[in-house]
């Protein structure tokens, strides 16, 4: 098999570039529509970023509008709520990462050691469920559960607290519900990694008298480590992409002190108030931080040779 494939590949190599292009014209045809769409709707907006530096006038178009320098950025930095938004965004995502990152790992370590296959499969099916529910529905449920009059949480605790008006509760609500929704889904990748462990390893360990805890510590965790690092890198690089949807839907006038984040500002200024330049500038600021993080993290990633993610 392999021996016959080698000369064939060699022959392909010898074909001229032009020949290889004409031979594969059908593949370029397949790529045509996705490429055109990507140019229009992905690269088009990248070109449009320049309105962050202009006084946009729809009549004059993007390139026809006069330059405005750093005006819109300055306006953003001078906004009375700038500090608040920046720190809320950073805190929400850093705390969110710290709390939610370990949960799927712990869950999958438990599930992997579970010897009752039927129970394991049932738990898996159930913990995936919240991932398939719309943020809108999740926030609707949260509003019901957290309601001061007869909400589930208040019923259980015997209190009448209006959680969504308390700024001090916002981050906890946001992060805890995020764990509830996504931790189960996050186990898939770890469980798949764990399932590649050679059963003979467990057998040998058991024969040597290793307890379940020791097996987790000495077999499972070392096996998961590269995947854990990979996942951590990917999460860190998206740190400014903290979910707009949930913050937007859980925001009330009274919890703004902690729920005001940059992406909500972009929506309110850009879409609701129609200040396109300001919205674009703020969005660019956000993206710029992400890019810096991505580059830094990519550098770190390269040190782990086998973990190759871009």
């Amino acid at each position: 098999m392999t021996t016959s494939a080698v000369p064939r590949n060699a022959k392909l190599q010898r074909k001229s570039l032009g020949r290889r292009i004409t031979d594969n014209w059908q593949l370029y045809v397949l790529l045509l529509v996705p490429v055109i769409l990507t140019i229009i709707y992905k690269y088009g907006p990248m070109y449009g970023i320049q309105i962050a530096f202009r006084n946009y006038n729809p009549g004059l178009g993007i390139t026809g509008s006069p330059w405005a320098g750093w005006k819109w950025f300055e306006r953003f930095f001078r906004a009375p709520t700038f500090d608040r938004m920046l720190w809320n965004t950073v805190k929400l995502s850093v705390y969110g990462l710290l709390w939610s990152f370990p949960v799927p790992i712990i869950l999958s370590l438990i599930l992997n050691q579970l010897r009752f296959k039927k129970l394991k499969r049932t738990v898996q099916t159930v913990i995936y469920a919240p991932h398939f529910i719309s943020t809108m529905v999740i926030c609707g449920m949260l509003r019901i559960f957290l309601s001061p009059s007869g909400g589930l949480i208040n019923l259980i605790a015997g209190t009448q607290i209006d959680f969504l008006t308390e700024s001090s509760a916002f981050r906890t609500i946001y992060i805890a519900s995020g764990i509830w929704q996504e931790a189960g889904w996050g186990t898939i990748i770890y469980l798949a990694t764990l399932s590649s462990i050679d059963p003979a390893l467990y057998e040998a360990a058991t024969v040597d008298g290793a307890s379940v805890f020791q097996r987790i510590l000495h077999i499972d965790i070392p096996c998961l480590l590269p995947m854990i690092i990979l996942q951590l890198i990917m999460s860190v690089s998206g740190i400014m992409n903290v979910g707009f949807e949930k913050a937007f839907l859980l925001q009330t006038d009274l919890n703004r002190a902690t729920s005001d984040i940059i992406s909500i500002y972009v929506y309110e200024q850009g879409i609701v108030s129609g200040k396109y330049e300001l919205g674009t500038a703020v969005g660019l600021f956000n993206t710029a931080i992400n890019i810096v993080l991505l580059v830094v993290v990519n550098r770190i990633a390269k040190k782990y040779g086998e973990v190759n993610f871009v």
Binding site: Y41, P45, G48, I49, I51, G270, I271, T280, G283, T287
Partner: peptide, 10 residues
């Protein structure tokens, strides 16, 4: 990406 507003304009 271009972000929310430039995409909206496109």
């Amino acid at each position: 990406g271009g972000g929310l507003i430039p995409t909206y304009l496109i």
